[in-house]
Simulated scan of single mutants.
Amino acid sequence: MHFVEAKGILSARNGMNIYRGCTHGCIYCDSRSVCYNMSHAFEDIEVKINAPQLLEKALRSKRKKCMIGTGAMCDPYMPAEEELKLTRNCLELIEKYQFGAALQTKSDLVLRDIDILSAINEQQKAVVQMTFTTFDDDLCSIIEPNVCSTSRRFEVLMQMKKRGIPTVVWLTPILPYINDTEENLVGLLKYCAEAGVKGIICFGMGLTLRDGSREYYYSALDKHFSGLSDRYRREFGNSYEIPSRNSGRLMAKFAEFCDKYGIMYDNDRCFGYLFDLPEKYEQLSFF
């Protein structure tokens, strides 16, 4: 871990990455790709130590309230966050200046900040997004070795439900010949239905691999799934898109389930929901 004084914090679409790099160890991680030009070792977490100060300056200058996002590239709840509390400090600022928040994580450390998320949601809007890939916790410990299990993430979603905080699940990636089964999909979808998630983001049944992430993924396959990397090379070569042979059947099951339980699953609608901050106060004045 190392610290930097960043020059800015919010992207053009009001997203922020307080940390850069990750120690979760997910074997499929796209953020390892060389196209992102990371100048340090991926596990050597870069910490934007002045993130709260930069965020406060940015929020003060905005004329219109909006959703502030975090977690698109790097999880806002790295283990270091437990001590540093930079994500918490930023959420406190979002609540103070009455903006909305949409965060994405795989960590149950988000429960520490459920009080602030509740406060944000009461006055504006807060959305917690969790990633689901693998229903079986033993398999999850191989695919995502240094982060809480899927069953624990489900518990996080249930706690959010109790507080009335809306949730969205990222059902991605689904790894060919590893977790691309109907049993895995149905188990994850049942979690989503019980937790009352607002929507599920899914880019199809498969994964994508770029230079950098591909090498790491194949190395993990060699370690945990003997012979599977050779099969990938034969079938997919250096392709970016790695679709499951079960994609059609699984996507049909996915759509059928979401329609049955009223879960939003059109990606454009899901992203629209994440970015949209309703004019609550104008709506209240109507009545």
Rank of each mutant, 00 (worst) to 15 (best):
D211R: 06
N14R: 09
I178R: 02
K64Q: 12
E194I: 09
M251G: 09
R214Y: 05
F42S: 04
N184S: 04
C202S: 14
M78N: 04
L277F: 03
E43K: 10
L55Y: 03
L55K: 02
G187P: 01
I142S: 05
S141H: 11
R233G: 02
L84V: 05
F271I: 13
A193H: 10
E194N: 09
Y36A: 00
L111D: 08
R112L: 11
G8K: 15
K223L: 13
P145H: 06
F203R: 15
N238I: 06
N14A: 10
G100W: 00
R269S: 09
W170L: 14
Y261C: 08
Y177E: 14
D180F: 01
Y36D: 00
V47A: 08
L93Y: 04
R20H: 13
R13C: 03
K161V: 14
L189D: 03
P173M: 02
P76D: 03
F3G: 03
T167V: 04
F135C: 01
Q159N: 14
L55E: 02
C74P: 00
K190T: 14
Y191E: 00
E241L: 12
I143E: 05
T23R: 15
G25K: 03
L91N: 08
T208V: 15
Y28K: 09
A252L: 12
W170K: 10
K57S: 10
E95H: 11
L157T: 05
D276C: 14
E5S: 12
A220M: 15
A51R: 03
E95W: 04
Y273N: 04
N267A: 07
E279S: 09
G206T: 04
I27C: 14
C90S: 12
F275A: 11
C270I: 14
Q129C: 07
S213G: 08
I68S: 09
Q53F: 11
T133Q: 02
Y265V: 05
M78L: 06
D138T: 12
Y28F: 14
